[in-house]
């Protein structure tokens, strides 16, 4: 069984998937694939990612790496951003978030713009 997702990679990581500043593609994956399988597929170091979305739900923010175990489903849209993307706290305050990201934010103190000084 396989699934097909719609993938977008933004910023410097786009080069790893054949683009320049952004890459968009339909991608066939094995059923049950997770975000970390996408990382492996394109040789993306998880620490080099920042914001990650699945179907407009925020699943990761810079420095927390809370999304690796998210399971993907057929028809999902995934957006992966490289480091260096600006998204001030107030402009994401109130956005829908995944449960794993909520848990990570509770553990790390949620009120930050980023969680890394990288």
């Amino acid at each position: 069984m396989s699934i097909t997702i719609d993938l977008a990679i933004y910023g410097s990581l786009a080069k790893l998937a054949g683009g320049k500043h952004l890459t968009k593609m339909d991608l066939e994956l094995e059923s049950g694939s997770r975000i970390e399988d996408l990382f492996a597929r394109f040789n993306i170091c998880p620490e080099d990612t920042s914001f990650i979305f699945i179907n407009a739900v925020l699943c990761d923010v810079p420095g927390l790496n809370a999304s690796k175990k998210e399971v993907l489903h057929d028809g999902d849209h995934v957006g992966i951003f490289s480091h260096g993307y600006m998204w001030p706290y107030q402009y994401r305050d109130g956005m829908p978030m995944s449960n794993s990201l909520k848990q990570a934010m509770r553990e790390h103190g949620a009120l930050h713009h980023t969680y890394t000084n990288k």
Partner: peptide
């Protein structure tokens, strides 16, 4: 990361936000 040379703002300007807010 955002404000240094070749950082997010220097590379893509404020329009670095378009794809994030859309996602």
């Amino acid at each position: 990361d955002l404000t240094k040379k070749d950082g997010g703002l220097n590379s893509y300007g404020t329009n670095v936000l378009m794809n994030i807010i859309n996602e």
